[in-house]
Structure formats: structure tokens, C-alpha cells
Design a protein around this nucleic acid. Structure first.
Lengths: 154, 154
DNA sequence: CCCAACTGTTGAGAAAGTCAATCATTCCTT
DNA sequence: AAGGAATGATTGACTTTCTCAACAGTTGGG
């Protein structure tokens, strides 16, 4: 049994109760990944948030703002300013949803798709750095497990 | 009744590019776990942040504020107000580090330990709800994989 | 014995999150 | 078909959290 006071200082907290707490590990891993992602996206004038919106707007799904809010777990008002910003930079357009005139469909412009293409590279490189110590199998199972947490009741 | 086109709308984003992005899954899973944790801790007058500090202060490690900041990935000034708050509620004490008079060691009071004992139950119950769809093995491997992300270079 | 580096603290400003109110539209009920 | 309830987007106010720079006291190496 190692004395409490011994290996305490530099990594002493590593043996703490929180190290077994999945929520804490989730928070810390997320903080690291987020910082790396934001740093990698900054040269493109994006953050993780705006990058996510842009990716979704460039996809097939034609999401409304409410759907973006739900998917990204943001307040609808946050989506407003996120889309405002992207739209003012001509990366994204608000189109009226033909089937519901209350809703806006958010679609990436050609410029937006162009930016995504290059930004995605930076994002991928950053993620690669963060996951450097995980095998390809590990990454796959991690993605699977996180998916069941992120989207319950499957 | 949903129309045919709505098959895309509600869950349409689930097939999006982000669903394979581990960083995004990390962010969303964390948001869910954090919300559940904060809700569960609120009745005890705690949030995830203050709970973490209290748990670490109640452990063996006798952390300094700088160590808390590093471990929790917070700015040192955030730790100041976090500890200020807990100290004002007599849950935690600042003790001068005998080996370095610049540093404070943060230690839980008996009242703090008492609170942790009950709060931990709520936290554990909340985590149980979040992880309901994961097997015990899955939780173990998830913890292991997250640990290598959260604490690189092991 | 200095000087650079480090700890905790304060304060200011930016960013992010929360919440209620409003308008236009749609859905439901009768 | 008309009414009212519910929904999507937006605004604005407010709180919380983040980020930084500056500063005093302390430490340790050259």
C-alpha cells in the first residue's frame, strides 16, 4: 500500500475517486477534444459549433433550425445567432420550408461546401492527434458506445 | 400522422456525417451526462463542478488549487471562486501547504464529507440512468477508452 | 543574493447558456 | 370551418462560464 502523501503531487489526483467516474472522464475527454478541434478550426474562421452547423447544412438532411437545436443540444436562440453568423459570411442560406412556412431550412452555399472540404481536413487531423493512442478497433467501439449514450433508446 | 417526407426530418440528422465524428459524440454524450448530473446534484446545492472539487478535496490527495485547475481543466481563477463558494458554506477549507507557502491545500470539512456521502448517491443514480443501455462490460471498456483520451501519454 | 518562475487572487471583457415574450403559422378539436 | 392550443423562429435581458492580463507573495536555481 503506497502512503497517501507519496506519489501525490504531480499525478496524485489520478488515483482519485473521479478517475472511475465515467461522467468526469467524458467531461475531461470532451474538453481536450474540443480544445484541439477549436484550435484546428480557428484558421478557417470556424469553431466546433459553427463547423457542426455547417456540416449538417451541407448534408442531405435539410435540417430546420429547430432540428439543429435538438441535434446539437442547443437553445433555439443560439442556433439563430450561429446561423446569422454563417449566413452573413455567405456560407449558409435560410430557405423557407415549403411544407411549413414557419420553419427555415438551413442549406450550405457552394462557398460553404468549399470551406467544409478544407476545414474537414483540419478537423480530421486534430481528431487523429487526440486519438493517437487508440487503435482503429478501439476508436470503432468507442464511437459505438458513445453513440448509445448520445442517442439513447435505440 | 407523419407524412412520407418526414421520415427524413425527425431522425434525418442521425444519418449525418457528424454521427461518425467521435468528437461530436463526445460533446453530445457529455452534454447529456452533465445535464443529468447537474439535475441530480441540484437538490444538494451542488453542480458537477463543485461536486468534483468536493470529491477531490475529500480524497487522500490533498490537492492544491493549481492541481485542481489542471485536473479539472479549469482556469486557476475559476478554482478560486469554486473554492470560495464551498469554503463559505463550510464544506471545504484552505490550508497552507507546509512545504510551499504559496500554495493552498484544499481539504473537505466533516460537513463536506457528509454532504459528499449523500450527494454521491444521487450522482451514482443519475449516471446509472444515463448508462442504462450499456452492459457492465461496455461501461468498463468505455471507462478505459475515455481514460486514455482524458489522460494521454500513458 | 538576485532574478525568473510559480501560486493564488482580482478584475475586466468576451463568449456561452438560460429564459420569457412575441409573431406567424400550423395542428387539433369540435 | 373556426376556434384555440401548440410550434418555429426571433429578440432581448439576464446569468453563468471562459479567457486574459496584472499583481503580490514565495520559491529555487545560478
Amino acid at each position: 500500500m503506497p502512503k497517501a502523501a507519496d506519489a501525490v503531487a504531480p499525478g496524485g489526483l489520478r488515483a482519485s475517486a473521479l478517475t472511475d467516474d465515467v461522467s468526469f472522464l467524458l467531461a475531461r475527454a470532451n474538453a481536450i477534444a474540443l480544445a484541439a478541434g477549436n484550435a484546428a478550426l480557428a484558421p478557417h474562421g470556424l469553431k466546433a459549433r459553427s463547423y457542426s452547423v455547417l456540416v449538417l447544412a451541407a448534408g442531405e438532411a435539410r435540417p430546420s433550425q429547430r432540428e439543429l437545436a435538438e441535434f446539437l443540444r442547443l437553445d433555439p436562440s443560439q442556433v439563430v445567432s450561429l446561423v446569422d453568423d454563417l449566413q452573413s459570411r455567405k456560407l449558409v442560406e435560410r430557405r423557407p420550408d415549403p411544407s411549413d412556412r414557419r420553419a427555415n431550412v438551413v442549406v450550405a452555399t457552394p462557398a460553404g461546401r468549399e470551406l467544409i472540404a478544407t476545414a474537414r481536413e483540419s478537423a480530421r487531423a486534430a481528431e487523429e492527434r487526440v486519438h493517437a493512442e487508440l487503435s482503429s478497433d478501439d476508436r470503432e467501439t468507442l464511437a459505438r458506445l458513445l453513440r448509445t449514450l448520445a442517442f439513447p433508446s435505440d
